[in-house]
Amino acid sequence: MATKDGGISLSRQRQRAAFWFLAPMLAALFLVAAWPLLRTIWFSLTDTLLSDLYGGEWIGFNNYLSIRTLESGRVIYRGTLVDPAWWNAVWNTVRFAFVSVLFETLLGLIVALVLNAEFKGRGLVRAAILIPWAIPTIVSAKMWAWMLNDQFGIINDMMLNLGLIDQKIAWTASVDTAMYAVLMVDIWKTTPFMALLILAGLQMVPRDIYEAARLDGINPVRVFFKITLPLIRPALAVAIIFRMLDALRIFDLVYVLTPNSAATKTMSVISRENMIDFDKFAYGAAQSTLLFAIIAIFVSLYIWLGKVDLSGEGQR
């Protein structure tokens, strides 16, 4: 009896301590995440200006969509949801996210399979692929902007020498190629991250499975699709969702590599532009709220449909 009481009060004591240990972190997260998010949503329902943050008045959903019927019977639609610039940004972001994540996953898988093999100099290769990851995004944007420079860039020079192109291309400035430039840099920078996450999954696959398959004389390609891929599926699913979320909110690379290009402007870029540069603070807030909603829906669907275990609690 006495021990049982002792057990209860001990776990009580631990739970009380846990509360006090968590409180400062929760307070900090409320201050910098929850509260600003609520304020952003609030701003999106007003006509607040950057120059006068407290002068805004409630205008309901007019920043999103307002429908007004004129006396002549003409109906006027306004707001983000009928703004072609916004839908252009949505399309740019989605296209960027899907293409970049697709390539990063495929290339990351190849790099991970290479690193999972045993060969001389493996440590060196792993060190080398960490370099793109370690370079700040802004620095890589500038480095590639220089390499992709239309007049003096080394990429045009290489491609001309190899006969791939017959005239110099203005990669970052031209509407047709700006998105390719952004994709190129992002894939270069993020494939290592993907490769490392997939490699961690690969290393959990017991080696004797491969051994057994090899002794049975099964084709390595078949082994990959029938054994390896199903076993690393959970790791792959988590890696893809993290990358996807990162890609959907991309800002810095686009902002620095292709400034003011309609061909690459993403949701984050257009929101900030309206908020800070164009003094349409509330309008930008509405756009960033929409981005938040899109991402939230996407994550919920992904977790629900893919039954992805993100918390890691399921393993224990």
């Binding site: 997260l29 910098v32 600003p36 998010l37 943050l53 960033s288 981005l291 938040f292």
Partner: peptide, 26 residues
């Protein structure tokens, strides 16, 4: 506890632009 962990993870995956207006005010 599981819910709290998921919320913390959710914050780390936040699109930072979504808090920009509110943080600017703060």
């Amino acid at each position: 506890r599981g819910l709290l962990l998921m919320m913390i993870l959710a914050v780390s995956m936040f699109p930072q632009i979504a808090v920009l207006a509110g943080l600017f005010e703060l």
